[in-house]
Design a protein around this nucleic acid. Structure first.
Length: 357
DNA sequence: TATTCGTGGCA
DNA sequence: TTGCCAAGAAT
């Protein structure tokens, strides 16, 4: 017996989550809200996204508002959410949509937008425009590999899994409710068919699940082993003048933490820095640098240890400002595009506790 | 196809 | 504590 869309939809009608970007039952969500939430939700938990989603709608009520905003303000609003290329693409996408007079309503048009890939295009098409497509995210991959007991490891098997996932939405009931069907798959993956200890007893598709019947559901999807995470070292410098102004600089627009602000610092390398070596790279090597301790930050593909040094001087020499340095007052820091790593560095440099979360 | 790209929560 | 994980895209 194949998994029947009607069984999933019946379950969804009783158990669907209420989320800020979701329309009420029977209504169609705003494409701007759908798009914004989908970008934020890429590799990011619902709990982390919710406050950012509210803040964005508050600051940028329409896609036109977002298009007209300055990039610095968009980056600052995104600060802390991670994967900052999403924020740059978000801004560029808003401008493209605003110029076009609205979101494209077909897959090809959606796929052409910055930051919109196969998954997000399908999600917007299904949820905002009612196209009968099945967006394949991590939830859908998990549900699909378990339903059909697909044991080939990801990511190599991704294409085969996607083809099988598409068959889930072929029934007439699914094609009649593409938005609900897509979101029902998300809710099933998030609440029942979870990565660890899935609640199979509560699953509307239990009777159709080969993985459950074989007792291997919880082990799927199989994943290729990951390589070891290398360690890198860096040093960053907190230079403050008598008025309490802090010296920052902006990172290049591409690459890690692209377009975000940071305390001036060394490159991040495999070899640890001695204090003397690090301070020789400080924005003002002659300042009275004091070691404030070490911050450890785990990125996706490496672990970073940052030694933080602080110094207070009377006033900034002009030569510093000429080198691309940016000076901000202490009270301005909260509203800036500072990634979490730099919040940690600032906290330790100012001998304050970690920012409340 | 394989890397690069954040962050915080949780077992 | 360490590793795993989250509505992936770009290169």
């Amino acid at each position: 017996m194949p998994p029947l869309p009607v069984d999933l939809l019946r379950w969804y009608d009783r158990h669907r989550r209420t989320l800020p970007w979701r329309a009420l039952p029977g209504r169609t969500a705003d494409p701007y809200h759908v798009w914004l939430s989908e970008i934020m939700l890429q590799q990011t938990t619902v709990a982390a996204v919710i406050p950012y989603f509210h803040r964005f709608l508050d600051r940028f009520p329409t896609v036109a508002d977002l298009a007209r905003a300055r990039q610095d303000d968009v980056m600052a609003a995104w600060a802390g959410l991670g994967y900052y290329a999403r924020a740059r693409n978000l801004h560029a996408c808003a401008q493209a949509v605003d110029r076009a007079g609205g979101f494209p309503r077909d897959m090809a048009g959606l796929l052409a937008l910055p930051g919109v890939g196969p998954y997000t295009a399908a999600a917007i098409a299904a949820i905002a425009f009612g196209h009968p497509v099945v967006p394949v995210d991590g939830n859908v991959e998990r549900v699909t590999t378990r339903l059909f007991a697909l044991t080939d490891p990801l990511p190599a098997a991704r294409k085969a899994v996607a083809l099988r996932a598409a068959t889930l939405g072929e029934g007439a009931e699914a094609r009649a409710r593409p938005s609900d069907f897509a979101q029902a798959l998300f809710d099933l993956g998030a609440g029942i068919c979870t990565p660890k200890s899935p609640a199979c007893a509560l699953c509307p598709w239990l009777g159709a699940c080969t993985g459950a019947r074989l007792g291997i559901a919880a082990t799927l999807p199989a994943k290729a082993p990951k390589g070891a995470k290398p360690v890198r070292h860096g040093a960053h410098f907190h230079l403050v003048d008598a008025a309490g102004n802090v010296l920052l600089r902006r990172r290049p627009d591409k690459g890690l933490l692209g377009g975000m602000l940071e305390l001036p610092g060394t490159i991040w390398r495999a070899q640890a820095w001695t204090m003397a070596d690090a301070v020789s790279h400080a924005p003002l090597a002659s300042a009275p640098w004091t070691s404030m301790g070490r911050v450890t930050h785990v990125f996706t593909h490496f672990t970073l240890h940052v030694d933080v040094y602080a110094a207070r001087i009377d006033r900034f020499p002009n030569v510093i400002a000429m080198g691309g340095g940016l000076v901000y007052g202490e009270r301005e820091l909260d509203g800036l595009a500072l990634p979490s790593l730099m919040r940690k560095c600032l906290d330790i440099a100012r001998r304050a506790g970690p920012a409340e979360t």
